[in-house]
Amino acid sequence: MKTAGKRILMAKTGLDGHWRGPTVVAKALRDAGFEVIMIGMARPEEVMQASIDEDVDLVGLNIGGHVDVAVRAIGMVREARPEVPIFVGGVVPPHAKRKLESLGVEVYPPGSQLPDIVAAAVRLTGAA
């Protein structure tokens, strides 16, 4: 794996502060050799700005609540960095999962196993 030097942005789109999931994922990505830039709870324009300034290879969004909030963040990142892949985790009910997947975003709901998430990051950043 050529993960060294690959950079991943991790953000929470909502104002709900459950950090358990995203932190465990961030550590697993770090341990796989990625540089993980955590920005915590961020508005869509903040996610977008960080994805530009930090020149990341992948954006990971932890979402909860309404899918439209995530869709807005995805739209802004897409506009600024169309080439950057996005993956999503968190509380994503089936209807939200379908919507996100239709936008070409990979979705990892609760119960997803870390090796699968890391493998996705490796694939999406072209580090395989």
Binding site: T13, G14, L15, M41, R43, E45, G65, H66, V69, R72
Partner: peptide, 12 residues
């Protein structure tokens, strides 16, 4: 910060 997540309001 709330306006940016207006659809979330009232969900929790």
């Amino acid at each position: 910060d709330v306006v940016a997540r207006r659809e979330d309001v009232g969900l929790t």
